[in-house]
Design a protein around this nucleic acid. Sequence first.
RNA 1: GGUCCCUUCGUCUAAUGGUUAGGACAUCAGGUUUUCAUCCUGAAAAUAGGGGUUCGAUCCCCCUAGGGACUACCA
Length: 520
Amino acid sequence: MFCYYLIMNEEISNIRVRFAPSPTGPLHIGGVRTALYNFLFARKHKGTFILRIEDTDQKRFVPGAEKYILDALNWCGLTPDEGPDMGGEKGPYRQSERKEIYLSFAQQLLESEHAYYAFDTPEELDEMRNKMKASGVLSPTYNSITRSSMQNSLTLGMDEARKRIDSGDSYVIRIKMPRNQEIKFNDKIRGWVSVNTNHIDDKVIYKSDGMPTYHLANVVDDYLMEITHVIRGEEWLPSAPLHVFLYQCFGWSSKMPVFSHLPLILKPDGNGKLSKRDGDRLGFPVFPLNWRASDQNEIFSGYKEQGFYPEAFVNMLAFLGWNPGTEQEIFSLSDLISEFSLDRVGKSGSKYDYEKTKWFNQQHLRLKSDSEIFETITELDNSIVEKFSREYILQVISLVKERAIFDLDILKEGSCFLFNEINFDDSAVNKKWNPAFIPHLKSLSDKLFAINEFAEKNIERVFHDYLQQHNLGLGKIMPMLRIATTGRLAGPSMFRSLEIMGKEKMLNRITEAIDTIKNG
RNA sequence: GGUCCCUUCGUCUAAUGGUUAGGACAUCAGGUUUUCAUCCUGAAAAUAGGGGUUCGAUCCCCCUAGGGACUACCA
């Protein structure tokens, strides 16, 4: 009985998903969302979340990109179960380290006549395409028609092809797409998708540099790594039929993963896929973490450095294309895990909304306790703990919390409490500082200073009594009191502010304000 | 151009044949507040168009329009 219970409890499903970025640059929010959905799906079903680095294109390799990917994933809390750094049974997890594997699979396709050698140079390919365009073909491709007039093992014969290979000619291996065949697959998000092979070209699956292309590597690795569900961006939808065909060629149809093609994240203005440059153009980050390209000084800003909480960032991302079907919008990562379902992922692209992202951060900030915020703001500025007690800082946090979207706002909004020097805001002074009322401000401050128990309620009472006695309007003296004690015209409750700051500081600041503003 | 995918308020979306088409962000108005912010209340705001199927279509089918992705020895 005990054993049975244990087994039930530790049972893990065999669901395996992978996030497969290529290290050609920093991961942008679309990529992070893909990783998130994979992660959520894996966790929800007690499956395995795998990171696989698709670095088959050596020309586009960017140093630091892989580390960035892992750092970004970790910051979001999306740590892979298997991957290049954490290992796993189905490794290695970098395609460049799996190089030898692919050739034998390409050869398998050659032997079954699903693929062939091709010797056409890039120049010859260009020429072919140009010629065809000139003769009215709108989208020339290397396909079942054109391959018969190109240099390949189909036209040359296998013996001749081998000779050329042996003599050192460079070659690629292309898939031999059959004529007029429907390829269908059932996408979890889109339903049945069907394409005729006449519209698919003879894609290169093995490059002349000895590396596979994405298509081959991806299918082979998904098979070898026993991936059960492929969750990726919609940009892969057009090549999915090729991948399905590859499974068929290998005889792996029964092991074919379930495909889910995610809708794209679109630019907030106009249309099109959100891209690298949109962020700085429109004033928001498109990357999770700051990224500096090694060859240039340009820095692309990241959500982390802008002060976003990873949980808010992840919450926002989850809602770009998915919703729980209830009216709840604020979710922690573990809430998302229990609620997530591919069935509730939409089909259409979503425009990114930075305002709503900030709102998510504000909501998550409010969920945090004052002492959690204490931890983060003292990380931001350690000097405050040297100057003030924890108790005092906690009071300031609770006072200004509702005014903040980011942790940094707490520091800004609370600056008059947390830093000894205050700056008098010029426009506030110009607007409301009336020297004629300085005598009143002075005697009011004496009255306030004389309060025994310097607490909000008492301060308020004394303040109002003073106004009444001298027949003064609130609008005359209150703004001056606020400017003198906080430097600004806007802020949280005046009386509570004074209580927290204490009567000594209040008096000093009023005196100082009267001096400096008069003289300034 | 071709292939494939998509189409509900400005934006993210709910409602899978019967709802006054719901919520959130943003916007606007009122209230609370010394102020700004918060908060509360309210307003404005959508089924792309046209045909079917049906007693009844946001929902199913077709066409049109619009948008997007892909169209490399890139992923």
